[in-house]
Amino acid sequence: MNKLKDRIIAVLQKVFELEQIDENASQQTIEKWDSLAHLNLIVALEEEFDISFEPEEIAEMISVQMIINFIDNHLK
């Protein structure tokens, strides 16, 4: 689980070009997380984990916690 979290945070750091990202971070707390960056993030996560999200999931994946939950579900 922690390994998964680290991989996800690494993707976020790369997409948002930030050195530090907290596991409680969300669209509210990261200024660069606008709608375009959100799509770039989803594409990057899909590539990293070789999975494909449903549009409904994409709309909800707006915090680190939610992202971890959805990806965890996909990988189960």
């Binding site: 799509l39 590539e47 494909s52 549009p55």
Partner: peptide
């Protein structure tokens, strides 16, 4: 088509 309908992307982001 997911990205087309979510955000009007006319080409595959990949």
């Amino acid at each position: 088509w997911r990205y087309y309908f979510i955000s009007q992307m006319g080409l595959n982001p990949r």
